[in-house]
Design a binder for these strands. Structure first.
Lengths: 169, 169
DNA sequence: GGCGTTAAAGCAACATCTTTGCTTTAGGCT
DNA sequence: AGCCTAAAGCAAAGATGTTGCTTTAACGCC
């Protein structure tokens, strides 16, 4: 049932656009009654927030490119690309809304997990250690901040520059 | 009229709590009709977003403490304190919702302006130069990111540590 | 294999909020 | 003074959100 509702949102969102979505519409498409959705999620935002988190979950571990800097640069570049796209920004915003602390934290954990994999590989290679929290502060946070607040202040190579600055220190 | 509505929200929010606010309630308190609010703002979120930005606007330039590091540490500490309080987090989230790019950008500009003042004073003293954008990336972005996504990962001295790390490099 | 228990979904009536066309009011301009 | 425009009021229609009660379906237990 939850799956039918999620599928209904994924179908309807491209058809109608984000802000024309309503609970009754989604319910009709999913073949359930609106009250079902209200009872499970509370409101449309919470539902969209759940779906946003689902979509932001990485589907595979980061590719191994042979060195810490190459791995981090590639990951950061791809992360920025995803987040700065129109749908990416929308998902990010949706994820931040619902249930303070729960959904946003899950997204952050996704990033932290990916970074940990990269750092683990670097450690196995004997490369100089960096901390996951530090990468969150120095790479992820600036990307997210700029995507949300200053999208025009992101130029080409921005993500990679953050990685380079971090590893240089 | 806009002022009456803003005042009504400021009155009602502490009385009822954020999520019990409705457009008709605010309208009644402000002595206007709901349609007035709908026509001017579109919906409750846009109105709350406007008010959030207003509240996040600094009311005075940062205090001069005699050195770049002291100024930045004091400012970052206070910024974190404001943002991590329950109302601060709520305002931050509200500001990010409305009108992608407009309100969030205004908040970011407030921070950038404060930082520019601090950096301008440092330059006048002949202290080594730092860039406003760099301070946004290294200090503001991590604070905002953690407040939004990982509030439990903020310990005492976190903001000051970010400033120290930045100025050491 | 029935049979109670329980959690979830349907239904339907009700309350509330949102939208909209039209009217009214207030300010600025000639 | 008398338009002209922008903004607000009003009220009705439409859509959404809420809730108590009923129904269904899954599970464990005699």
């Amino acid at each position: 049932m939850q799956e039918a509702v999620h599928a209904a949102v994924r179908e309807l969102e491209p058809e109608l656009g984000r802000e024309k979505l309503t609970v009754p519409l989604v319910a009709a498409r999913a073949g359930v009654t609106p009250s079902t959705i209200y009872r499970r999620w509370g409101d449309l935002q919470a539902l969209l927030s759940d779906i946003a988190v689902e979509r932001l979950r990485p589907d595979s571990p980061p590719e191994d490119r042979g060195s810490l800097i190459a791995d981090l640069r590639a990951w950061a570049g791809q992360f920025l690309e995803e987040m700065s796209s129109a749908p990416g920004r929308a998902y990010l915003r949706d994820a931040l809304i619902g249930d303070p602390g729960v959904n946003a934290l899950r997204c952050s954990d996704y990033a932290a997990d990916q970074i940990s994999v990269i750092l683990g590989r670097a450690a196995a290679r004997g490369e100089p250690a960096v901390d996951t929290e530090t990468v969150l502060d120095r790479v992820v946070a600036p990307i997210v901040y700029r995507v949300l607040c200053r999208p025009t202040a992101i130029g080409p190579g921005y993500a990679e520059g953050l990685v380079d600055d971090l590893l240089r220190s």
